[in-house]
Design a protein around this nucleic acid. Structure first.
Lengths: 203, 203
DNA sequence: TGTTTTATATATCGATCGATATATAATCAT
DNA sequence: ATGATTATATATCGATCGATATATAAAACA
């Protein structure tokens, strides 16, 4: 169906890279605060190219959200899934969350979804369901590892996986919010061990 | 110094009520998304009256944030401080948070700070320190009651009050985020009891 | 009553907004 | 080479943005 070579003049910029730059602008300035001039300037393309490749401003915005969910916020989840013990997994997740919240390459603090996109729910059609899906997706992956530990016998058979996954995700949201308010990495790293312990407590 | 009667024509609108309406508009549309026409229309005043009474758009925005922190988000904290037992206090706090997140009179979901203001950190001068102060204020009040319970002997002497207060606040942020994404009151009420228990766990 | 002071109402400012019409450039198909 | 197709560049559209100049209305002071 889709040949590698398409008809007509090929585009002179990298689609995903442009989307990434647009994400940074939306992240830093918000949906309405990001003007088309801000966006196209950061993307390195002209207005008409943006409209031709991405649709209008709203469609570009939704594409940045989808791209972000797919590609940008996975390090904590991957740490959670690959660390050897469940303790190390939780610790790794929280450390990566804090690192991400405070040291993102774009210079923005927090999380695109939690710090910017959340404002446009109810204002930009299509946003609410994407945010809800992102929560559901992350919690499912978190709960899955807890379930695997239960199956392996390293967690008790009545361990409330889904409940603890939700709590872990709430901790993530808390860190994102604090980072946005200017909290430092060091401030947030302090009670990680206590949180690891609490997330695994049986009683 | 300030006589009750001031010189000149008295203003024809209620200052705090206008501020409250402005808050709703900023909450629903964000800082840049809220136009002066949106704002003045909701406030029931004309443009020049807004500028005369509140300054410019940015100053109005900061005033809505201050007013919101002072007056609008206290129900959960008050429940936390007035309930008889510490268990009931935590339960009451979480229930009030969920109610607030899903049933605010303005129709907006979530929390003004967590769902809108957070986007404008780094964009509108004066916002970051206000958000940080709001976190600090809430956590201090939460930790204070834990400390009181320790003093009363209803919590162990090594109970980590500040740490648990922070976790309780993170739960709040999680609920606000979920509410913004469209989660229902019922969905969020499910694991309250488990959370009450976990927040008080000693081991 | 007249002066001063503050608030409101009308009208409108220049700047910027998102979006596009038009023309040109670069590729594939024939 | 020629036509079809897609991307880019320039210029600019009407609408709306935040903000204000001017004139009028309503109060306290003299």
């Amino acid at each position: 169906m889709n040949d590698r070579k398409r008809l007509g003049r090929p585009r002179g910029f990298d689609y995903d890279e442009a989307l990434k730059q647009a994400t940074s602008v939306f992240w830093a300035k918000g949906y309405d605060g990001a003007s088309l001039r801000d966006l196209t300037s950061a993307m390195g393309i002209t207005g008409p190219s943006m409209y031709a490749s991405f649709g209008d401003k709203r469609e570009l915005y939704l594409k940045t959200i989808d791209h972000y969910i797919d590609a940008d916020s996975c390090a904590p989840l991957e740490a959670f899934e690959t660390e050897e013990s469940i303790q190390a997994a939780i610790r790794g997740f929280l450390i990566e969350v804090i690192r991400y919240a405070t040291e993102h390459e774009s210079g923005a603090k927090g999380c695109f979804l939690a710090s910017s996109v959340v404002t446009t729910v109810g204002q930009v059609e299509g946003v609410a369901e994407r945010v809800a899906a992102a929560i559901e997706y992350a919690e499912t992956r978190l709960a899955a590892r807890f379930d695997r530990e239960v199956a392996r016998g390293t967690l008790p058979s009545d361990f409330p996986s889904r409940e603890r996954a939700a709590l872990l995700y709430d901790m993530r949201q808390g860190y994102m919010f604090r980072a946005r308010a200017g909290w430092s990495r060091e401030q947030m790293m302090k009670d990680i061990e206590a949180r690891v312990h609490m997330l695994l407590s049986s009683d």
